[in-house]
Design a binder for these strands. Sequence first.
DNA 1: AGAAAATATGGAAACGGTTCCACATTTTCT
DNA 2: AGAAAATGTGGAACCGTTTCCATATTTTCT
Lengths: 328, 328
Amino acid sequence: MKKKLTINDIAKLSGVGKSTVSRYFNEGYVKEETREKIRKVIEAYDYRPNQFAASLKAKESKLIGVIAPCFDSTITSRILMNIDEKLISEGYRSIVVNTNHSIERELASINRLWQMNVDGIILLATKVTQEHREMVNKIGIPFVFVGQDVDGHVSIINDDYNAGYDAGTIIGQSAPQNVLIVSVNIDDVAIGKYRKEGIIAGLKSQGVSNYEVIESDFSFDKTRDVIAYQLNQEKYDAIICSTDRMAMAAFNELNRRNKKIPSDVSLIGFGGYDISALLTPSITTFRFESEYAGELAVETIINMIKGGAAKPSQVIGYKCIIGESVKK
Amino acid sequence: MKKKLTINDIAKLSGVGKSTVSRYFNEGYVKEETREKIRKVIEAYDYRPNQFAASLKAKESKLIGVIAPCFDSTITSRILMNIDEKLISEGYRSIVVNTNHSIERELASINRLWQMNVDGIILLATKVTQEHREMVNKIGIPFVFVGQDVDGHVSIINDDYNAGYDAGTIIGQSAPQNVLIVSVNIDDVAIGKYRKEGIIAGLKSQGVSNYEVIESDFSFDKTRDVIAYQLNQEKYDAIICSTDRMAMAAFNELNRRNKKIPSDVSLIGFGGYDISALLTPSITTFRFESEYAGELAVETIINMIKGGAAKPSQVIGYKCIIGESVKK
DNA sequence: AGAAAATATGGAAACGGTTCCACATTTTCT
DNA sequence: AGAAAATGTGGAACCGTTTCCATATTTTCT
């Protein structure tokens, strides 16, 4: 393993002081002539300054920590990709951490990122606890929550209530006899509360009051079990699922029971997963502008880093992708 | 923003030298009594040593760079998740970078990670160029390729030929008249060459020689277009797709044409995506042991870091997940 | 009991950069 | 032309750690 060159080596090789080389990289005064000498050496040896050493003395590390609950959700990867993209275009780098839905690992990750001197942290949140708030206050670096509204903190949130309302309305318009709403624990306030409340309000707006709410988690298997159990108890002709993955579980269970969508049962989901469009029939779903969420998160955090005042919470929109899964 | 404490502050606060505090963290001689004093201070102020500063002096950064072509593939997130998991359990951290399928960004990422002093890099590879080889040689840190066999370098590879062979055999046993193989560019040697060659050999083993190979990329849209075009030209009663996403494109196109699977056309894919099982009919697919690939990659790279001799390439297995998409 | 080994500790020198400062050279202004 | 301003440069200090070394102190051995 060849030894890595340092700024000192470059300085010697090009016959200038190390501070001049440093300035070369950080836009300080360097004469064109000197600049050229340094450029040649750097190119010849393909030298790159060590980021860690740089951020040790400089206040900025140009590093943003991004914490995600998982990598295997369409939405998550969509946001992640856009955060990454935008971050790079703004001259930052990202460190992505996967917590695999563990709250402890989430908190531990915040600490680890902090140790790494990141300039800020973006958290793709599902459940925000008191501990989160305390930790955010403690570390005192710019922090942006995506997906959950955390009062007193900066967050980028989906317009969950209204998307829910629209979904409820669409299902309501199909004049269902009995609606099953598959939601999640209220710990996830955005989905378990706002989205759900929107759905219910939407249904009511169409005069539908015959509905039942059951709770699942985001997993396919659990959701299918929960729905299967519920379908054994009672008859439904419409199912509203909190995410597309959950809608897929419903889809699967309905297929298994030979229920036709939408003639027997209408189905609707949230997320705008690509696959929703692939199924036959395709599933009506709500797609949040996650690309925009990623971008906005980056803009917001960079603004905070630069000392700008941040608005506490910003809402991103959605659009309905109409499929064939709702009865006319 | 509260000022971050340094090891010096901790040393003063607990009345010991900073080297003692350092030893406290790095298992050196510290008397139980002293240890206790330090522990108290650290806990009171919730101090954590700055990783960057640490890795500046110490040879190890305990950081592994992981480069992925995207985040939105089932396989990728599966591998990523396991790499992460295993890395943490081994006392390392990962820096995950998404290159969004851009070769330039891939090369740039290698450089960036190198600048960050990572102890090693794991690359989830699709296409490996000469530049890759040169760069790997240049940076001289442990490097593991996952998914592609790179001669002279360490790689973890799928048993593509045999999986292909089995797929070919299964389709071959259904005695098809005319088979369409949807492959990818040979730049992706693993899939575009070995997997394809395995498929063809498998078909031949069952006496099938009536097949055609077309080329697509990994995207849904392109693949559907390519298949649609081909179906306009000729009649096929079996389609073998190189990935499940591509199989989904075929699925979609066949549905659109009212072709029944498997009675009109048999369909088979690779990857073991969850959704393959959800479709009706479910699609027969080959699932590589990607969890194991992740683990193995980590074991291998840590072994290399510790100076152990690494075997050039290790093959991971697969299993066939039988669906209902192949005619008996 | 005395020597050798093991345990404990703090000071100082790295690590590879950035930045402050003092000073030299060039350009611009009146 | 001379002063002021802008440009250019190198040395030294510093960022927050680890590690080497010198030096105590304690334990173990013969």
